[in-house]
Design a protein around this nucleic acid. Sequence first.
DNA 1: GGGCGTGCTAAGCGCTCGCTCACCTTCGGC
DNA 2: GCCGAAGGTGAGCGAGCGCTTAGCACGCCC
Lengths: 207, 207
Amino acid sequence: MTTAEETGGGEAPWAEVTPDAARRLLLAAVEAFAERGYHATTTRDIAGRAGMSPAALYIHYKTKEELLHRISRIGHEKALEILRTAARREGSATERLADAVSSFVRWHAGGRTTARVVQYELDSLGPEARAEILALRHEVDAEVRGIIEDGLATGEFDVLDVRGTTLAVLSLCIDVARWFNLDGPRTPEEVGTLYADLVLRMVGAGK
Amino acid sequence: MTTAEETGGGEAPWAEVTPDAARRLLLAAVEAFAERGYHATTTRDIAGRAGMSPAALYIHYKTKEELLHRISRIGHEKALEILRTAARREGSATERLADAVSSFVRWHAGGRTTARVVQYELDSLGPEARAEILALRHEVDAEVRGIIEDGLATGEFDVLDVRGTTLAVLSLCIDVARWFNLDGPRTPEEVGTLYADLVLRMVGAGK
DNA sequence: GGGCGTGCTAAGCGCTCGCTCACCTTCGGC
DNA sequence: GCCGAAGGTGAGCGAGCGCTTAGCACGCCC
């Protein structure tokens, strides 16, 4: 599993964005939004980071909001794919939940820049764009809830409030993007392992 | 609309702010910052919500940032006080941790408006203001870590990584401010109870 | 009841924002 | 060798921003 940061290899999720100039602008926007927030970022700043004039942005994107929308959709699709892969592999519910949490957390820690924008700038989108993203979030939620329900059915887990616990598990993982620091003492892998253990305890696995 | 929300879990923390006009402006700022974020909020909006002209703001506060700074400091002090009260009461580590988590979560859920600003707008502060707030956050962290270490010493808890688990517990509680919705299916009390149970599982209490 | 500090407003300054427009370059097809 | 499309630039627009200033209303002390 490759990981380092965006450039180093939270894989290369932006490969699908073409042409090249549009991708460079998107990458610059991710950086800027993650650092200062959507509203505090200027289109001049984004274009500058991409080495272009302010006007160039509008050749590839209609508005500044379209940039955020594209980033958010691609990011959510990637996050959903990570969870789906873990949820639908072979193995017990315990193994699948541990896998889901650790890879989801690794993505939020290693690709903190992207994850921050994806998870915390949702409110800056307009109503229709937000609705589209919320639908993806429901799928994310359903994927995790599915694993927990599997574990309940097999007797592996012991959970009183399935929806509440699902919410807490996802909340715990997502908040990694807020506090994680690449220069800090922990690697994304370490946090992933720790969190998988904590989550298994939360669902009462292996008691 | 007078704040019925704050009273749910947080009494009236702004009573210390005088004179009355300054408090009304602060309250309006909390609402606006929570809704749209600091950078997307205009001074005209804040003054308007407080029923005053844009210029009135500058009689009581030097800058827009000073408003955020005051809100953040008062909010962090309140959060710290809540945790201190729970951490230093009589009782086993298990009881104190459950109390700390449930009351901390109640504050984040019931006073979601305030908590959102306090927890998510930290980066909008300047360097010295941010440093002051970060010191308060370290005290918050130390308070929770203290309870967990107590529980380890008495054999109540079973935790491998104390700092990591402390971080996760706080992260879980804080993120409540992001997703909690007063119109949703759960009351702050219910979430507090659920989370206290989940956290006790995370630290291996009552195995 | 005149003088004055306090708290507020209307008007507006200087600046920067998101975005547009007229024009320039490069390049493959014929 | 000319042509149009694609991708870029410099200059600048209207609007709205944070914040300031001149002046007004009002309570309070003498």
